[in-house]
Amino acid sequence: MNRYIHYGLIALVSVLFPFFAEAQDDVASLMKQTSLCDTLDFCGNGRIRQATSLGIGYLNEYDTYLSPQEYTGLSLNYRNESYRNRSWQGGDKWITNKVVQGYIGYSDNKVQNSRAYSFLVTYHYGVLRRWRVNNRLQLLAGGGGLLDVGTLYNTRNGNNPAQFRFSFGLLAQGMVIWNFNVFHYPLRLSYEVGVPLVGATFMPHYGQSYYELYNYGEPIEQLNFSSPFNTPSILNLLSLDIPTWSHMTLRISYLGDIHQAEINHLRSHSYNHAFMIGFVWDSITLPSFFGQHK
């Protein structure tokens, strides 16, 4: 497995190497042209800060509907997030954010004679309130809606080959952004946390087959009320933003995506710890570009 991580990192660095090289040429001019506000802050009405990252991760899957064992393996991850300043209350206190995140992965049991494949796509939309503690530190907190769709497929099982993952609900979010300099080079460190609060999670009964569920039952009846007590989950994202061009910033992140559930006597988790590399850039909405944004 370590060999696969090694190959994955080499592939990522190879793809990104041209960008690193170009970035080195521009550092001197960048230092002169760029201020923290230009590259590392949310500035201006109608501006949208976007970040897209790809990464490779360590995956730990567990679902007692399929097996009493934890399966471990690798995940390929994608994350796109956008933050948009809102002029509500006439200031820059409010930000809306939208995140699309997902992984595909495989995992093996301990003796590596059984394999599972999985994917999970997460979408959430939230509203964040911003507090500027000082010129360098910002705190954001808020919440929004969350939707998870995915599956875990065990290649060895018969009438219980897969578990469908579907949940939606409310998400509490918090974020800390710290702008700092290293040898006068501007950097930004941010930590984001998301905790699902209440919602609904799909889970079949303890020994219920999908054959029975879909042929004779009502799948919607298997939506269960979820809360941190039966689905204690959390999303962590720690990112370091390094300005490289005048219009784009390199992002290196750790993504810790923890999903857990204990419903209908069935226990499950999906632990995904990923190393991500991507870019952050600003875009502007067309109405704002033509001066119509309010």
């Binding site: 009493p68 064992q69 301990k110 003796v111 099982n157 087959s209």
Partner: peptide
């Protein structure tokens, strides 16, 4: 029948429903 497994990887099939 459902399927599960033991810690040593042996597969188990059993009547479940």
């Amino acid at each position: 029948p459902f399927t599960s497994e033991l810690p040593n990887g042996w597969l188990v099939r059993f009547s479940a429903s």
